[in-house]
Simulated scan of single mutants.
Amino acid sequence: MKRFCETEELNGSIHYLCSNASKFVTGIVVPIDGGFSAFSGV
């Protein structure tokens, strides 16, 4: 996206991780990078 994220763009992930929807999720890394890691060869 060629830019840094806006604070509001983190809300979806934060709400998910703080909700009961993620109660069975353990040991993951959630990349919030606008697709950078998908296209940079990381």
Rank of each mutant, 00 (worst) to 15 (best):
M1T: 05
M1S: 13
M1V: 07
M1R: 13
K2P: 00
R3N: 01
R3S: 06
R3M: 10
F4P: 10
F4W: 09
F4T: 05
F4E: 15
C5L: 04
C5V: 10
E6D: 11
E6Y: 07
E6K: 14
E6R: 05
T7A: 13
T7L: 11
T7F: 06
T7Y: 08
T7E: 13
E8Y: 09
E8R: 07
E8H: 15
E8A: 05
E8W: 13
E8Q: 14
E8S: 12
E8T: 09
E8G: 03
E8N: 14
E9C: 09
E9D: 13
L10Y: 15
N11A: 14
N11F: 07
G12H: 00
G12D: 06
G12C: 01
G12E: 05
G12A: 01
S13Q: 01
S13E: 09
S13M: 14
S13A: 08
I14A: 09
I14F: 15
I14T: 05
I14L: 15
H15M: 11
H15S: 08
H15G: 00
Y16S: 03
Y16N: 02
Y16E: 00
Y16T: 02
Y16Q: 08
Y16P: 01
Y16D: 07
L17C: 13
L17S: 02
C18W: 13
C18S: 12
C18G: 09
C18H: 03
C18K: 12
C18I: 11
S19T: 14
S19D: 01
S19G: 13
N20G: 14
N20Q: 10
N20I: 07
N20A: 04
A21R: 05
A21D: 15
S22M: 15
S22R: 03
K23L: 13
K23M: 08
K23P: 02
K23C: 08
K23F: 11
K23S: 13
F24H: 10
F24E: 06
V25E: 12
V25H: 04
V25T: 15
T26W: 04
G27F: 02
G27L: 01
I28D: 05
I28T: 12
I28P: 02
V29W: 03
V29R: 04
V30P: 01
V30H: 08
V30S: 07
V30G: 00
V30Y: 11
P31K: 11
P31T: 10
P31R: 09
P31D: 10
P31N: 11
P31E: 14
I32Y: 01
I32P: 09
I32K: 06
I32H: 10
D33T: 06
D33S: 03
D33G: 12
D33M: 12
D33P: 04
D33Y: 02
D33H: 00
G34P: 03
G34R: 02
G34I: 06
G34M: 06
G34K: 08
G34S: 12
G35V: 03
G35N: 00
F36V: 05
F36K: 11
F36D: 05
F36L: 14
F36Y: 15
S37D: 10
S37H: 14
S37N: 14
A38C: 11
A38Q: 11
F39H: 08
F39V: 01
F39Q: 13
S40D: 10
S40H: 04
S40Y: 00
S40Q: 11
S40I: 01
S40A: 14
S40C: 15
G41T: 06
G41S: 08
G41P: 03
G41N: 00
G41L: 06
G41V: 06
G41F: 03
V42M: 09
V42H: 13
